[in-house]
């Protein structure tokens, strides 16, 4: 029983670690996560600005229970109205007694997470001027255009079929 208790207690430590991880995740909400370190190019300083998304989830569970009379416990089958195996020694009598405690405990946990980042703009600072140059994600736009066209063609096709009928 002590071993099982130790195992479950170790899982509690894991919850603490998971909560620490969650607190570390929340540091992504700081501006430092979005704006990069300034890069010096001559007199000019360049900063990248990105969009960052991160998520995390975890779960833990533990439980235990006692065996019903009639269930196998400690290698000895206990019958509803007493032991089915006639004990020969005092030790066996103790093991096979219907009042003997038989219980078990177990625990487990799991989690997952993900993060993504995408550049949004580049900020260029010179001693005379500040410029914000947007970063255009052509792949994402192309995918959006293709899905938009597909949706429009589907709708027009459906409209044509409806008007024919």
């Amino acid at each position: 029983m002590d071993d099982i208790r130790e195992f479950v207690t170790a899982k509690v430590d894991d919850i603490v670690e998971a909560k620490d991880l969650l607190n570390r995740l929340l540091t992504i909400a700081q501006p430092q996560a979005v704006f990069g370190e300034p890069i010096e190019v001559g007199e000019q300083k360049v900063i990248t600005a990105s969009e960052v998304t991160a998520g995390l989830g975890f779960g833990f569970g533990a439980g235990g229970g006692a065996a019903e009379p009639g269930e196998a416990k400690g290698g000895v089958l206990v019958a509803q109205n007493g032991p089915s195996v006639v004990p020969e020694t005092d030790e066996e009598t103790e093991k096979a007694s219907p009042d003997a405690e038989a219980s078990g405990m177990g625990g487990g946990g799991g989690g997952g997470g993900g993060a993504s980042g995408r550049p949004v703009a580049v900020i260029s600072i010179t001693p005379n001027d500040v410029r914000v140059v947007p970063v255009v994600d052509q792949t994402r736009i192309l995918l959006a255009v293709l899905s938009t066209l597909a949706a429009i063609f589907l709708m027009l096709g459906k409209l044509r079929r409806m008007t024919r009928n």
Binding site: I28, Q30, F35, V52, A121
Partner: peptide, 16 residues
């Protein structure tokens, strides 16, 4: 930044 937090997880969406 949008931060959503629940007892066993969280989500952060941060943008410039």
């Amino acid at each position: 930044a949008l931060t959503v937090r629940w007892p066993q997880g969280g989500l952060v969406w941060n943008q410039p």
